[in-house]
Amino acid sequence: MFCSECGANNADTAAVCAQCGRNLQAVTPATPLQPTPLQATGVVLAPVAAVQNYLVFAILSTVFCCLPTGIPAIIYAAQVNAKLQAGDVSGAQVASRNAKMWCLISLGLGLGLMALYAILIMVGVLSGIHQNR
């Protein structure tokens, strides 16, 4: 299948163009499967390419918080796009949920560590005051 936007050659099942990211499935007419002509006009297809890969949050998790939980998020973010390239939209959605989960784990871990640090600081400050007396 050739992309209507940039002309790149893609696999026939590809959901998005590997070259420019254009949604290839929305271009294919959806009418043959729908027998009711009333719905044929104005049908808005769900944007297939809009499967979030959470890459920005995966990188933020890796670099600013927690390397061990950020790396799985990056791996799943890559998997989202790999599945989209192969035309496996439901697989991409599963990978997307996993990417989101690892980002949230990182966020929770980061907030937990910050809270722990704050508690340690306060305990340290309080014991410091105690010692000064």
Binding site: A18, G21, N53, I59, I74, A78, N81, Q85
Partner: peptide, 18 residues
Amino acid sequence: PKPFLRAEWIRALGAAII
């Protein structure tokens, strides 16, 4: 507007960070 990153590029980015 964002370019669609191929999976290989995302994996390369992860490898570069490590």
